[in-house]
Design a protein around this nucleic acid. Structure first.
Length: 422
RNA sequence: GUGAGUGUAGCUCAGCUGGUAGAGCAAUGGGUUGUGGCUCCAUUGGUCGCGGGUUCAAUCCCCGUCACUCACCCCA
């Protein structure tokens, strides 16, 4: 053991081969589900100009205020490792004029790492992976319902344990200010009963007090005015149709008028999915509508809705194991020292024809090699010792049913290909 | 940023009120001079996170430090 081995950065994990297979299976199923809804993949850069996130995510958010990995490049420009995907996606949407012609619907999804400098915890990492989707150009509540449907079906497809969908509407610029004023009013009158952090923020961001877990704040908030009594007619109608849509699609949801999302850009529909088996951070997905973000980011007034899932959390909350083939070798070559050169050449020949071959670089005992062959999951062991070398005929052992047969070395490629495809 | 808990073999963990360490799994060899999954035997493998202190003696007690974990904040 080395004295001071270099370790990975805090909060950052290696995804080892044993986990990577499951990881990729989840990704594969996500792609399949997105494709069914007509979403196309967009591969975004993992760093952007800092202002993309400051303006996109919101200056008041925790993400921008204390969690971003920001650095200056040699040209003096401030760059940031992306803490989330929507801001980048919106930047790309505008940059490539995807809103043309007017009325265009654009459906995008992405998959990749995000970076936030938080204290690591169960289900929380400094580099974590998100699967995200964004739907641009639709104001209709049916878009909200379809986006949630997509999310819900994907969650079903990977056997998530105990998923629960929480739904709320945050209203819009018309109904939010009066509600906000009412809330600030309410809180000011009860300022003494709030916790320290809430006393500090209730004027700037009164909605956050809903999320506070302090006893005093919780009690106060049970009587607080909620947004659902303040919707303007348009928002009320929109939310009603979203709910109707979810019911038509048989998606179970729970209303939570106290749900507030941590990003500033949301309006109207917001939602969150929690699952079992996760510890304290039990939210596996979250999203909502952001009808003003594109305009505020310098683009046209295009409405949008999106969501993101946290891959590490998904993996932790998978119930019944997913079935998939982990990729075993076709043939494991077991050989003796005398046949080392021949085994090496045969491996080369077989691999050139596309057969998956595994073999030791240095032969251990036959027992050992057979054990490795078994563990590798290979279908066949190809055994080559001195006798086989002399007769130019190897032994092919089927590891699944323990039968074996002699097989001439001359046309191994053909005979093996035949056996493997049968 | 705050708080708590844990650091002993590659992995999962024992180790009583201080006497410098053990099991299971894994690995390697053997029982079958050339055949895996089961079984049996043997072997390899440890600066007991790091630094200091108390003591005749510290894995164990004390202090510091680092790392990991969980929780708060907040989020995926």
């Amino acid at each position: 053991m080395a004295n001071n081995p270099i370790k990975a950065v805090k909060g950052v994990k290696d995804i080892l081969p044993a986990d990577a297979t499951l990881w990729r299976e989840v990704e594969r199923r996500a792609r399949a589900q997105f494709a069914r809804f007509g979403f196309k993949e967009i591969v975004l850069p993992i760093f952007e100009k800092t202002e993309v996130f400051v303006k996109g995510v919101g200056e008041e958010t925790d993400i921008v205020q204390k969690e971003m990995y920001t650095f200056q490049d040699q040209g003096g420009e401030s760059l940031t490792l992306r803490p989330e995907g929507t801001a980048s996606c919106v930047r790309a949407f505008i940059e490539h004029s995807m809103y043309h012609p007017p009325g265009t619907i654009t459906k995008l999804y992405y998959f990749g790492p995000m970076f936030r400098r938080e204290r690591p915890q169960a289900g929380r990492f400094r580099q974590f992976y998100q699967i995200g989707a964004e739907l641009f150009g639709a104001l209709e509540p049916e878009a909200d319902a379809e986006a949630i449907h997509l999310l819900w079906l994907f969650i079903q497809s990977i056997n998530i344990k105990g998923p629960r969908l929480y739904l709320n509407s945050l209203g819009c610029d018309t109904c939010r200010p009066p509600f906000r004023a009412a809330l600030v009013n309410f809180l000011t009158a009860r300022k003494e009963r709030l916790c320290e952090t809430c006393q500090g923020r209730y004027q700037r961001n009164p909605l956050r007090v809903f999320d506070c877990k302090a006893q005093g704040c919780q009690q106060v908030m049970t009587e607080a005015p909620t947004i659902d009594k303040h919707y303007c007619p348009d928002c009320q109608a929109h939310f009603d149709r979203v709910k109707k849509g979810l019911e038509a699609l048989a998606i179970p949801y729970e209303l939570n008028s106290r749900m507030v999302r941590g990003l500033d850009y949301y309006n109207r529909t917001v939602f969150e999915v929690t699952a079992e088996g996760l510890g304290s951070q039990n939210s596996i997905a979250g999203g909502g509508r952001y009808d003003d973000l594109i305009k505020n980011s310098g683009g046209p007034a295009v409405p949008a809705i999106g969501f993101a899932l946290g891959v590490e959390r998904l993996l932790e909350s998978i119930g019944t194991p997913l079935e998939f083939s982990p990729g075993h070798p076709d043939v494991f070559i077991v050989y003796m020292e005398a046949a080392a050169d021949e085994a090496f050449r045969i491996a080369g020949r077989l691999r050139r024809t596309g057969i998956a071959v595994e073999k030791a670089f240095k032969p251990a005992s036959l027992k050992n090699q057979m054990g490795k062959a078994d563990k590798s999951g290979a279908r066949f062991a190809l055994i080559i010792g001195e006798e086989e070398l002399a007769t130019r005929t190897a032994i092919l052992k089927n590891l699944k049913n323990s039968t074996q047969q002699p097989i001439p070395l001359a046309n191994l490629e053909e005979s093996l290909t035949g056996l493997l495809t049968s």
